[in-house]
Simulated scan of single mutants.
Amino acid sequence: MSIEVKNISKSYGAQKALDNVSFSVKNGEIVGFLGPNGAGKSTLMKILTTFITADQGKAEVNGNDVITSQKAVQKTVGYLPEHNPLYLDLYVREYLAFNADVYKVHKSRIEEVIQLTGLSTESHKKIGQLSKGYRQRVGLATALLHNPDVLILDEPTTGLDPNQLVEIRDLIKNIGKNKTVFLSTHIMQEVEAICNRVIIINNGKIVTDKKLNTLVQEQQEQTIEVEFDKIVNADTLNDIPNLKTVKNNHGFVWELIFETEQDMRPVVFDFAQEKGLKILQLNLKNKNLEQIFREQTNIK
């Protein structure tokens, strides 16, 4: 396993940030670690990167204990914290050279990470002159300098514009082809685009840990938006089997919510034919990750 977490708990005074958390991450997985603010995400990431210690439990990265083998963990982990710490007065290459000395890696690695993270055109500039997107690239380049097996990224796309989001997303996906990536984010579209597994934490406890496609497919509720060619009474629509709720959005457009895994579109077509109705449009609107997240974390 790349990451192994067993019964980890951590408190700050009376506040319990992590409550008996356990999970494991296999080599090569890209895992999205989700949760509301204050759920315990950053605390766990700091434990995995040896910045802080847990009160109880055990954690290993690449088989190295985060307490008894801290140096070994630090050698195998690349970490980008939420607030990317950079020396703004240093040039990009100068900053990477400084960190290469810290990691004791060959200077040739600097050119490799500059190419990998797309920093070539900006590498002659001071970090303070760079956009937020390129500063994130510098942070990623630094995290990759020592060629770690595991990347831990805490909110890597915070504050980026839409174009920068796509660039950093593609960069992380590319890096994830050869490394284990464990990332925290509030942007659900990023998780859907990058990750193959989702772990959701709420109030310090894991509430969901599943493959992304499994999580979406498991949802029992199915929403169909349908437009008929004339007025339909809500009571008439209630004759459709497995119908949980019905709502008139506007005019002849209805939102039908079914509680079943069965594809109800053919059933709606049969209903319309039986009632002498024509369907002008019909759309299946499955739950996305954001809706699932809100339900799992009880956000109204």
Rank of each mutant, 00 (worst) to 15 (best):
A193F: 06
I194E: 04
C195M: 06
C195R: 03
N196V: 04
N196I: 03
R197T: 01
R197W: 01
V198G: 02
V198M: 05
V198A: 02
I199V: 07
I201S: 08
I206V: 14
T208M: 05
T208F: 00
T208W: 00
K210T: 08
N213S: 14
L215E: 07
E218L: 09
Q222M: 05
T223S: 09
I224R: 09
E225A: 07
E225W: 00
V226R: 07
D229K: 08
K230C: 11
K230T: 15
I231P: 00
V232K: 03
V232I: 10
V232Q: 07
V232F: 04
V232R: 03
N233C: 13
D235M: 08
T236R: 10
T236D: 15
T236I: 14
L237G: 09
L237Q: 11
N238D: 09
N238R: 15
N238A: 11
D239Q: 12
I240T: 10
I240K: 02
I240G: 06
P241S: 14
N242P: 01
L243K: 06
L243V: 01
L243I: 13
L243F: 04
K244R: 14
K244Y: 13
V246T: 11
V246F: 00
V246Q: 09
K247C: 05
N248V: 05
N248Q: 11
H250Q: 13
G251N: 14
G251L: 11
F252T: 15
V253R: 08
W254N: 05
E255P: 05
L256N: 06
I257T: 09
F258E: 10
E259H: 15
T260D: 02
E261W: 01
D263C: 01
M264A: 09
M264F: 14
M264V: 15
V267S: 00
V267Y: 00
V268D: 12
V268S: 12
F269H: 13
F269S: 10
D270F: 00
F271N: 07
Q273S: 12
Q273C: 03
E274Y: 09
E274M: 07
K275S: 03
L277F: 07
I279Y: 02
L280Y: 02
